[in-house]
Design a protein around this nucleic acid. Structure first.
Length: 587
RNA sequence: GAUCCCGUAGCUCAGUUGGAUAGAGCGCCAGAUUCCGAAUCUGGAGGCCGCAGGUUCGAAUCCUGCCGGGAUCGCCA
């Protein structure tokens, strides 16, 4: 139970006592912090329904609540708001309990689920670029949040390793080096263990092949044929494909590791491919698939659709499978291998129609309940011009270059601030990386998932205000002051005593963690957790500025403040880990 | 053309199951350090919430229309 839940239950009892719906007792953090800590607007809704004076109802509720020890002050304001201020006698033990909790008051889901989260989607042969950034950052955070809440979560990268781009690559290499053994139609293998080209070759070939196919229909036809042959199992092509995948995956793993993003599964579209003949058979026999213009399609339109809903192309007129079919087959594969309760897709907003089609199709086929499939779409990361982020030359920026850029800036800033004074080169480098990643990830996560946002390197590298480094700084300061207290023999942490406003505010903020986590979980919106992390760091900074700790003369106050500081630091570090980054020990 | 997302302070953005005086960060102005880390803290200025109607005791939030920006719309993913 979160603090708001508990308060809502108490106020709800009072409403029930008046013969009203207890749901009217919903309590929220006050809009007017100058007047109250929490408020309940239920009297307004009750008055509307009962056609009574809201202030009268509110007065009756307030009267009932005044007997409760949880509140220090209850008042009715404006048209009928019930304003609440909690008593220190109620708050202190709750903070003590939170301080003793290894989860720092974190919410736990009552009925955990088994979940698959798909948040990669990189294409083989294509280096990771900034377009992959948001999926990786948001998906990693959601995975960690859900795991912490109690779910059993499997993260899958879901490689794009089976579509037309593979045929484009194979045909490109064939044009360049037709004598390779892989292109001998008679060759059955075994083929060489070492790849015929380097990663750099592969990364150069992809855009070249893609552009050539776009420009020339004859060239595009070669790619389509190669795709079909690969998917039909031509040995040389399969061997080549394996090389391409291995080269790419090695590079991807390094890039994701630099972002502290970790996948449990490295499956791809190709892993779902073996299921397709069987599924096609099944769908045909049940009349779910039909033929149209030489392609095998599934109609997913519904009578009450407002928009045009095209069918999915399960098998195209060439006989090749596209991403509609592999996405359907992947769901079936996951169902068989992992039997998840729910599958989540962290993929950008432009795929909304696609996922709606796929979800409808699998539901229609009876493979998976549409309601348990969620497309957690996100907006675009734009440059300062408001258009999708590009390099100065207009190309896509590789993720690796992007991370380097951010780390370089962090290193500079570290040097200017003198925070890494006397650190070894290794530690300085490690701290620069942590600061850079924190800046990058927090900048992304603190925007709501669904909105586009402008990525302004100068802005979030300023390291002031609502930024990742601000959170790191707060965390490091907690560590520092606690260490100083220990060194000075300030004694142990002890029961919390809330005297100063800054202490009470920090306590209330700490207790708000459960609600923030629950909201972030329920709406799949990590920025709600970012808001809490920032509020916590701010509350700590204010407390720190106002309340002495190490040299406080009163031993019990010192013990209380040590508890508050340690708990704030502990909860902050926990939240940082849920967001997907961490603070250094010192900086 | 249809559908979807968006339009809030100088800038970047929260807030949209209807409620008090619309918030934050940056920037700007004015302050705080003989004391635990000033990447900090305190105070201030700054808003016809795109426009016009409507519903309501009450609208940034719900409904309708319009203006402006973006995305998507059967065989590429």
């Amino acid at each position: 139970m979160t603090l708001k839940d508990d308060l809502s239950a108490i106020v709800g009892d009072a409403f029930a006592g008046e013969g009203l719906d207890r749901a009217l007792g919903a309590v929220k953090v006050a809009d007017r912090p100058d007047l109250a800590q929490f408020q309940c607007n239920g009297a307004l809704a009750a008055a509307k329904a009962a056609k009574k004076n809201p202030r009268e109802i509110a007065g009756a509720i307030a009267e009932k609540l005044s007997a409760r020890s949880e509140f220090e002050e209850i008042s009715v304001a404006g048209p009928g708001f019930i304003n609440l201020k909690l008593s220190a006698g109620f708050l202190s033990p709750r903070v003590d309990a939170l301080a003793a909790d290894r989860r720092f008051g974190g919410w736990a889901k009552p009925a955990p689920e088994k979940i698959v989260i798909d948040y990669g989607g990189p294409n083989v042969a294509k280096p990771l670029h900034v377009g992959h950034l948001r999926a990786a950052i948001i998906g990693e955070s959601l995975k960690r949040i859900m795991r912490f809440a109690g779910d059993k979560v499997t993260g899958d990268v879901h490689l794009g390793d089976w579509g037309l781009q593979m045929g484009q690559l194979i045909s490109e290499l064939r044009l360049r080096q037709p004598d390779l053994v892989y292109f001998d139609p008679e060759a059955k293998g075994p083929f060489p263990a070492d790849p015929p080209i380097s990663l750099a070759d592969l990364e150069e070939m992809y855009p070249a092949a893609s552009a050539a196919c776009k420009a020339d229909p004859v060239r595009a036809d070669l790619a389509r044929k190669a795709t079909k042959e690969l998917q039909s199992g031509r040995p040389g092509y399969r061997a080549l494909w394996r090389h391409f995948v291995d080269l790419s995956v090695n590079a991807m793993k390094r890039d994701y590791a630099d972002l502290d993003v970790e996948f449990d599964l490295w499956k791809g579209e190709a892993d779902a491919d073996p299921l397709i003949p069987e599924l096609t058979e099944d769908l045909k026999s049940r009349g779910i698939i039909e033929e149209s213009d030489g392609a095998q399609i599934i109609r997913v339109a519904r009578d009450d659709d407002k928009k045009e809903m095209p069918p999915i192309i399960f098998i195209n007129s060439e006989g090749a499978v596209g991403y509609h079919a592999t996405d359907v087959a992947t769901i079936v594969d996951r169902k068989r291998e992992l039997d998840p309760d729910r599958i989540l897709y962290v993929v950008d907003a432009r795929q909304r129609l696609h996922f709606e089609q796929v979800f409808r199709a699998v539901d229609k086929a009876g493979y998976f309940d549409e309601a348990k499939l969620e497309h957690l779409w996100f907006g675009t990361m734009n440059g300062k011009d408001g258009k999708p982020f590009k390099t100065r030359e207009g190309g896509t920026l590789k993720l690796r270059d992007f991370i380097d850029m951010v780390t370089d800036r962090a290193r500079e800033r570290l040097a200017e601030s003198g925070f890494a004074e006397g650190f070894s080169a290794e530690e300085t480098e490690a701290v620069a990386r942590q600061v850079g990643i924190a800046a990058l990830k927090f900048a992304d996560l603190s925007n709501p998932r669904t909105s586009d946002y402008i990525f302004d390197l100068d802005r979030f590298m300023a390291f002031e205000g609502k930024t990742g480094p601000y959170l790191l700084y707060a965390s490091v300061r907690v560590r520092s002051v606690v260490a100083k207290a220990q060194a000075a023999g300030a004694g142990d942490a002890g029961p919390v005593k809330l005297v100063a406003d800054e202490e009470t505010d920090l306590a209330l903020t700490l207790l708000g963690f459960a609600d923030a986590l629950q909201d972030a979980y329920a709406r799949r919106l990590p920025h709600l957790l970012c808001d809490h992390a920032f509020a916590l760091a701010q509350a700590f900074s204010k407390f720190y500025a106002a309340c002495r700790i190490v040299d406080e003369s009163d031993a019990s106050m010192r013990a209380s403040r040590l508890t508050l500081a340690q708990t704030a630091g502990g909860q902050l570090d926990l939240i940082l880990s849920l967001l997907g980054f961490s603070a250094p020990d010192r900086m």
